[in-house]
């Protein structure tokens, strides 16, 4: 217990002073006040985040995070509640734009395009970086219309056959086709929780994004539905880069190749999943995964 306190204090100490000074006038170039343990780079990076800071009003919610998202891999973001992992996730497709007080500094690149630059179009960005939410949120429309929504607004299908094809393919990939193919016109809200979440995944992949962000996609589901989603994530990895925020360390261990551990807005440690779980190098990571807090 004493050790833990020391470790926390150690991690907190350097941040307090700069946080106060940067609260009012945050300088994007302010030097990081801590070092992330492990290698933040990926083999085939699609998204590269460098020195990312997020402020909610005066609150410094994300501090100097560097992280790559690589192709064909699932990266899990773990950490105790309020550590900033969801906030970071939402930065990657600018979902934080909807929160008025939020401000993001630093650089996040999708390939070589800065997603926070003026040239980047949010609509385009979100078509390329899709998102699945914590609670299944199917639209109050039919199952078909739920999946067809994205292709329709983006004009992805030239005609009805093409749209039918996209819908069917997406539902198949989400492993839902066999369950719903006879009732595509029924409302999506009538499905069970797990089916709803798979519908939301199908809705996301119908747009053919390059990256899929998942914000605790299984937290509202029972174990059986969770297992199905996890299998699905593993399959989807063949075609997409996936970032998943999870509260469950078992889930992170099961589905991800790399794991990043966040603590109080900082990326403490990042590395191969089996290494993080078997041989954490930072004291805080160790405390978390051994269940001393969280």
């Amino acid at each position: 217990m004493r050790m833990f306190r020391q470790a926390t204090a150690e991690a907190m100490q350097p941040a307090t002073t700069p946080r106060q000074t940067t609260a009012r006038e945050p300088a994007p170039s302010a030097a990081p006040t801590y070092r992330t343990v492990g290698d933040h780079r990926a083999a085939n990076p699609i998204i590269t985040a460098r020195d990312v800071n997020v402020y909610y009003g005066d609150k410094h919610a994300i501090q100097h995070v560097n992280l790559d998202i690589g192709l064909n891999e699932v990266i899990a973001l773990i950490g105790p509640s309020g550590c900033g992992k969801s906030t970071f996730l939402r930065c990657l497709n600018r979902m934080n734009d909807t929160i008025e007080s939020a401000r993001v500094t630093g650089e996040i690149k999708l390939y070589d395009e800065d997603i926070y630059s003026k040239q980047m179009d949010v609509v385009m960005l979100r078509a390329r970086v899709g998102m699945v939410f914590q609670k299944p949120n199917p639209f109050p429309k039919s199952i078909y219309d739920n999946v067809a929504y994205g292709p329709r607004i983006h004009g992805l299908a030239r005609d009805r056959t093409e749209l039918d094809e996209i819908v069917q393919k997406s539902l198949e990939r989400a492993g839902l086709w066999n369950e719903v193919k006879d009732r595509l016109e029924e409302p999506g809200t009538g499905l069970s929780g797990g089916q709803q979440q798979r519908l939301c995944i199908a809705r996301t992949i119908a747009v053919s994004p390059e990256v899929i962000l998942m914000d605790e996609p299984c937290s509202a589901l029972d174990p059986i539905a969770t297992a199905r989603i996890e299998d699905l994530i593993d399959e989807l990895r063949q075609n997409y880069a996936i970032v998943i925020v999870t509260h469950s360390m078992q889930q992170a261990a099961r589905v991800s190749q790399r794991t990043a551990y966040f603590h109080l807005g900082r990326l403490i440690e990042v590395g191969k999943t089996e290494e993080i779980f078997t041989n954490p190098r930072h004291k805080l990571t160790e405390d978390y995964i051994t269940g001393r807090f969280g």
Partner: peptide, 27 residues
């Protein structure tokens, strides 16, 4: 209308008016 529905639509890349007309208003 719950914010999660709006988020779902924005997350797919819908514009505000598309979200309002096709998700919020029907809901």
């Amino acid at each position: 209308v719950p914010q999660s529905l709006r988020d779902g639509s924005y997350g797919l890349g819908a514009t505000k008016s598309e979200t309002i007309r096709q998700v919020v208003l029907p809901a």
